[in-house]
Amino acid sequence: MNDLELRGKNALVTGGGVGIGAAIAEALAARGARVAVTYRTHAPSDEAVGRLRSADGRPALTLRSDLTVEDEVQALGDRFAAELGGADIVVHNAGGLIERSRIAAMPHELFRRIQAVNVDSVFLVTRRMLPLMSTGGRIVTVASLAGRSGGHAGATAYATAKSALFGFTRGLANELAPEGITVNAVAPGFIESTPFHDTFTTAESKQQTVSGIPVGRAGVPGDVAAAVSWLASPGASFTTGTIMDVNGGQHFS
């Protein structure tokens, strides 16, 4: 096996139905991994599932689950174990803004929902999947540039959640290093062709944002997938506790 090949590895990608999650799942499958994807609101298309066949010809496992509900997370872990066995790679991609709201007008319930979708889900899935992982395991979380920059108006709660993932990543990396499991995160900047920006970003705002990206273009889901694929690979065994910026020079940590 070379440093990038994932043949024989079992991977879970949360929120893997569309956008960045779908690109990550496809990239892992292309390198030989057997992939399971979770979804709640965005089910993967038949065409997308067809692209996720592993090197040994096994079809992808699709798991509908609300990752903020402990019992549902327990059930998805049970099914993963029954269908695939041990887990080698866990990618936390599920999350979202839900809706824009300034803090002064935000109901507490909305603030808690945003934290649950972005942070509680990562905790619950991690806790469930860790018993299935062993030496050489990889955990990668998709955070956001908003966790560093604070995001735009109306996204403070989302930025708070994504920033929390940085601390979770570094703390968990310390906990799991003696077990030979690495834990890293990526922090994407503006990534087009995703439900997030299709829903919450206006055409004018997109144009303004892209004009300020030094490399001269918006990111695409494949840019994030490439970074995640490397962090999930055998070649990344000496990298843990890091936050990898994927933003075209939009922000330097």
Rank of each mutant, 00 (worst) to 15 (best):
E5V: 14
L6H: 02
R7L: 15
G8S: 14
G8I: 14
K9F: 07
N10P: 06
A11N: 05
A11R: 00
V13I: 03
T14R: 02
T14G: 08
T14L: 05
G16Q: 02
G21W: 01
A23N: 03
I24Q: 01
A25V: 08
A25T: 05
E26D: 10
R31W: 09
R31Q: 15
G32P: 03
A33C: 12
R34E: 01
V35Y: 00
V35P: 01
T38E: 04
Y39H: 10
H42C: 10
P44L: 07
D46K: 13
D46P: 06
L52C: 12
S54A: 15
S54H: 08
S54V: 14
S54P: 10
G57F: 07
R58V: 15
R58N: 10
A60S: 12
D66P: 04
D66R: 06
E70A: 15
E70Y: 07
V73W: 05
Q74T: 14
L76H: 08
R79E: 10
F80I: 07
E83Y: 11
L84P: 04
G85M: 08
G86W: 09
G86P: 08
D88N: 15
D88E: 11
I89Q: 02
V90M: 09
V91L: 05
H92A: 03
N93V: 06
A105H: 09
E109G: 07
L110P: 00
F111Y: 10
I114W: 00
Q115P: 01
V117Y: 00
S121A: 15
S121P: 04
V125C: 12
T126V: 15
L130F: 12
T135H: 13
G137S: 13
R138E: 12
R138P: 13
A143N: 05
A146V: 10
G147I: 04
R148Y: 09
S149I: 07
G150Y: 07
H152T: 12
A155Y: 02
T156I: 10
A159W: 07
A161M: 08
K162R: 12
S163R: 05
S163P: 04
L165R: 00
L165Y: 02
G167N: 15
G167H: 13
R170T: 06
G171K: 08
G171C: 12
G171Y: 03
L172E: 06
E175G: 11
A177K: 14
P178W: 09
E179W: 15
G180S: 11
I181G: 01
T182N: 09
V186C: 07
A187W: 00
T194E: 07
P195R: 11
T199C: 09
T199S: 14
F200P: 00
F200C: 04
F200I: 04
T201S: 10
T202Q: 06
T202S: 15
T202C: 09
K206D: 10
Q207N: 13
V215Y: 08
R217A: 13
V220T: 05
V220D: 05
A225H: 00
A227H: 01
L231A: 05
P234Q: 12
G235Q: 11
A236F: 03
F238T: 09
T239E: 12
T242L: 08
I243F: 02
V246D: 03
H251D: 03
F252S: 12
S253C: 11
